[in-house]
Computed example of a mutant assay.
Amino acid sequence: MRQAVPIASSAPSWLPAALRGPSWSLREVWVRWASIIGLTTFFVVAQADWHGLPRWQVWSMLLLRIATSWNGNALLFFYLRRRLPGYENTMRRVLLAVGLSVAFTVLTNFPLTWLTRSTLEPGLAFWPAYWKSLLGCLRFVVLATSLYESVYFFHQWRHTARQAAGFARESAVARFEALKQQVDPHFLFNSLNSLAGLVGDNEPAQEFLGSLASVYRYVLLSKDHATVPLSQEMDFVADYLNLTAVRFGAAVQVVIHLAPEALRQHVPPLVVQLLVENALKHNAISEKSPLRITIRAAGDVLRVCNSRHHKTVLAQTSRQGLQNIVARYQFITDRPVGIDPRETEFEVCLPLLPAA
Rank of each mutant, 00 (worst) to 15 (best):
L63P: 04
L353F: 10
L243I: 11
L230V: 03
A250V: 04
T227K: 12
F189C: 03
P351V: 02
R93P: 01
V151D: 02
W24P: 00
A46R: 11
R162D: 13
L107R: 05
H159E: 12
P290M: 11
A144R: 01
R319A: 13
R65A: 04
R308K: 14
E149C: 00
F42I: 13
H282S: 03
Q273S: 07
A297C: 08
C349D: 14
E261I: 03
V58A: 12
V106F: 12
L322G: 05
N283F: 06
L314I: 01
E277N: 10
R55D: 08
E121K: 01
A279T: 00
E28P: 01
A161W: 15
V31K: 03
L19R: 11
G197C: 06
V29L: 12
A250D: 08
G249W: 12
A67M: 04
D235N: 12
G321T: 00
K180W: 12
D201F: 08
L322Q: 01
N324C: 05
V106I: 12
P351W: 09
V326Q: 15
F187H: 08
I66S: 08
V304C: 07
W30R: 03
F208E: 14
L135R: 11
V326D: 12
K311S: 02
E345M: 04
L120N: 04
A74D: 00
P85R: 01
A103S: 09
L124F: 13
L95G: 02
A17D: 15
S307K: 01
D49T: 00
A205Y: 06
H309Q: 09
W56F: 11
F110N: 06
G123I: 04
A251T: 02
L302H: 12
H51Y: 10
L138C: 04
L124N: 07
T105G: 03
G299F: 14
T344M: 14
P260K: 08
L322P: 02
W70A: 07
P6C: 06
F248I: 01
V304I: 13
G123H: 13
P290C: 06
T317A: 14
V102Y: 00
L270H: 06
S222P: 05
Q265T: 09
D201W: 10
G123Q: 14
V267P: 03
T105M: 11
E177C: 07
L220M: 14
P6M: 08
G38Y: 08
P268E: 09
L107F: 14
A315P: 01
N109S: 14
Y87H: 15
V199W: 15
L138N: 06
A8G: 06
A74G: 00
L107E: 03
G321A: 11
V102G: 00
A168Q: 09
